[in-house]
Design a protein around this nucleic acid. Structure first.
Lengths: 218, 218
DNA sequence: TCTTTTCCTGACCGTATGGTCAGGGTGCAG
DNA sequence: CTGCACCCTGACCATACGGTCAGGAAAAGA
């Protein structure tokens, strides 16, 4: 036998490999379509076309439109949460919040569709991720608020309501994704250049960090 | 003749009066439904039910769903623009921008549905109000940016890119409408109280005005 | 090889939606 | 009072949607 085959079930097989690939294709297409048309405006046919698969195949992997949508939103939420790693273990507000702004701006730039889906979901009353808001997000928010309060107590920044500061961080950074089309239009119809993105990040960081008294100079 | 009838067509009549009232009902219901379900998810039947009118009556006043939607978005845009009056004729950034923040926060509080419809429209690529973005909004933005630049040149505030400052103002104030559900959930499921709204306004103003160096103290 | 399991899809179905229309009602001018 | 123009709406229609399913293809296991 020329084939020793040391481990029988070694190769994952084209089977599960193809399965993952198809799911990836569907989820990517779904994210785009949901972002562009909203849940109600999105159609399974459109998602199927964009993924290059027959519609019935979508229903093989995802039983219903809602299930597919839920997966998309959950995936976004995961990315969202990981962005907060920049927050932790920072010695002071300037570095912690600064890094968080950078991370969230980068996500707005790289995953604008995801941000839009999230925004749309929340705007419509969070019908499918209400439980996430009440558990994971609430815990996350409480933790960061406590962290910020610690900085305030330590005299590292001005006394600002941590909750409203967090809202401001979310609003400002996500605006560049959610309202990207408006920004692009006001930019003469062209997407922001690399330099403009850097300028945006710098402006946001400057205003907020200075605004909370976390910048040494000035 | 006991009736002098100084002006023949004086009384507007119940006719046009009822017409206006019905249109108002429909537009109010449409704003709510479009905000809650998005354009694609909204149905004429739902709007009709909420307005207390038969569906066919909607089509008497507004030929198509798109036409009704367009009217809703246009009305919001008008309110949006009027809010900027606070901006003009202000001697310095603190009062001008401060008043603008107050005005926009108040709109977010009073017209959350309108804000959501606008956000949704822009997020989906502004299919029906693209021309507004390219004309009215672009002019408005250019004017305010010049005004801010004037303040900067006069040394009344730090050198901040006016464009990004405007984005920040929009993002932050509208967040309280667009993400009101998320904020409410993080607030223990209860809407913000009067005091909390005041705190929100104060926080936003403090961070931004201090952040751009427009606050005398500190 | 044969069997079993998983994967895939064209064709189909019930439903709900945006929109239409004929016909009846109603305020108002003359 | 009469005629007319505007107003209103129940019933209807074509379409498009989410979802189903029978049956074939292909890989995995024996």
């Amino acid at each position: 036998m020329p084939d020793p085959s040391p481990i029988p079930r070694l190769k994952p097989g084209r089977r599960s490999e193809n399965r993952r690939e198809n799911q990836r294709l569907i989820l990517a297409a779904a994210e785009k379509v949901f972002a562009e048309a909203g849940f109600g405006g999105a159609t399974m046919q459109l998602i199927a076309d964009m993924a290059g698969l027959p519609k019935a195949n979508l229903h093989y992997y995802f039983a219903t439109k809602e299930e597919l949508y839920r997966r998309v939103v959950q995936d976004i939420f995961e990315i969202w949460l990981h962005a907060a790693d920049s927050f932790d273990a920072a010695p002071d507000p300037a570095s912690g919040i600064g890094a968080y702004i950078d991370a969230k701006m980068e996500i707005s730039r790289r995953h604008p569709a995801g941000s839009k889906v999230w925004a749309s979901e929340v705007m419509h009353g969070a019908p499918v991720i209400q439980d996430y808001l009440e558990t994971t997000l609430r815990e996350w928010t409480g933790g960061r608020a406590a962290l910020i309060q610690g900085w305030i107590d330590a005299g590292k920044m001005d006394p600002i309501d941590p909750q409203h500061l967090l809202y401001m961080l979310w609003a400002t950074t996500q605006h560049y994704a959610d309202f990207g089309h408006q920004i692009e239009t006001l930019n003469g119809g062209a997407p922001l250049t690399e330099a403009q993105w850097q300028a945006a990040k710098a402006s946001v960081k400057q205003i907020i960090l200075r605004g909370i008294g976390a910048l040494p100079g000035a």
